[in-house]
Design a protein around this nucleic acid. Structure first.
Lengths: 230, 230
DNA sequence: GCATTTTGTCAACATATGTTCACTGAAATG
DNA sequence: CATTTCAGTGAACATATGTTGACAAAATGC
């Protein structure tokens, strides 16, 4: 007969307000996701972190993991979804900012970078597992980014930007922009924190790249591509 | 007293021509590198593959690893160097192709894609560990890509492309191009092999993106950036 | 208020990992 | 030819991992 002294459910988050059972479950679920995100943030890539590491970081016993996910792959997918949500929120934010007539690019970039710095783990995860990671996760991210691209293209259509172009072309442009964005996010998050000068340079470079892309986009003619195709 | 029957050095590659001792050593070293590259090619990202897996794939006992590398990190760096060499070779190839006056972009892209398909493991590794991977490896790749960018910018200067622009601007443009290239490589290598139609589409999209970048590059004015900076 | 779910814990397992050490046998050295 | 060097072997270690099963106790359902 064992005596348990330290068995008052052990897992009580600092902000544990949810009193229901399902609420508490979701709480530790988020704990696990958060733990994985945190682990990924300092160097480790997702496929290299172990189930036990995650539970350790989350302050939970390894077996508790299975109450929430079948395996690490499933957690990975949930993670991707979370990152996707962050990206959508970002898009909504930029959209809300309206269409400042002057220097729209610099403005949007500023919002974007602010967002990146506010959610470093999400962006690092997205950038890092997009081409690396497990095939499952990679595919999931590809989908998520695809949705994002389409959404952005639709936005541009709505504000009437290059409304003469077919959807394909708009999406092509947007994907170029988003690639550049994710790339910049990764670069910026990797900077040593004590080098603000480097950050400024990188930021200016980033802005230039986006500006250049839109410079090209303004010149883009559907016939250009078509004429070269045949 | 143990009897050894199967101990004729066990490790003899198919194309084992090198007869010297150092030669044979370098041979198994390459075996290890090759094994790692192969493992990475089917899904696993570098930090997730184990020392033992590598030696297993290389057909060598685990302890033999230490005769060549201190640890996996060191092997990772060697791997990056190898990928860098491949990239340089590619650049030389494109350079050798000269400056076809018409449709230079389509031409270069063709050479590039051919190269990517010929060395899928190198490109997958580069693309995948660039943002993911261990910090050490990531930094190494960043350096390698940086060299590549500078080299390419210098090339463009030599052929007189936009010779009016400062070096910064040229490098900014090149880094945009290279990002797009690495991105496309990753996308293309992830395609299911039985979907040539998808490959064509992706390829056309890739060409369009590069074309758009150069369209922007032709319009780029140093003053544009400058005027917005102040 | 009792029975039932259900979230999390504990103990234990088979297996995989990185690393050590002493060894072998062929190439290099003299 | 005798000696030394050293790339590769084999056995063994401590440790870490994923996963199972039985159990505790709090929330839920009746």
């Amino acid at each position: 007969m064992r005596v348990r002294k330290k068995s008052e459910s052990a897992v009580v988050g600092p902000e544990a307000q949810g009193t229901g059972r399902g609420a508490r479950k979701q709480m530790t679920r988020e704990r696990l996701l958060d733990a994985a995100l945190t682990l990924m943030n300092d160097g480790h890539s997702f496929p290299s972190i172990s189930l036990r590491e995650v539970t350790r970081e989350a302050g939970v016993v390894p077996t508790a993991f299975y109450r929430h996910f079948r395996d690490m792959d499933e957690l990975g997918l949930a993670l991707v979804e979370e990152c996707g949500l962050t990206l959508r929120r970002l898009l909504r934010e930029v959209r809300k900012a309206g269409v400042p007539t002057t220097d729209i690019i610099r403005h949007s970039v500023a919002i974007y970078l602010q967002y990146v710095r506010a959610n470093p783990r999400h962006f690092r995860t997205a950038a890092s597992e997009r081409h690396g990671g497990s095939p499952t996760m990679r595919q999931a991210i590809r989908n998520e980014v695809g949705h994002f691209i389409r959404e952005m293209a639709q936005d541009m259509r709505l504000i009437g930007y290059r409304s003469d172009l077919p959807t394909d072309a708009l999406e092509m442009i947007c994907s170029l922009v988003i690639n550049t964005m994710l790339n910049a996010a990764s670069d910026i998050l990797d900077l040593p924190a004590d080098q603000p000068q480097l950050a400024r340079e990188l930021e200016e470079n980033f802005i230039s790249q986006i500006r250049l892309v839109f410079l090209g986009a303004e010149q883009w003619r559907a016939e250009t591509a078509a004429s070269h195709k045949r």
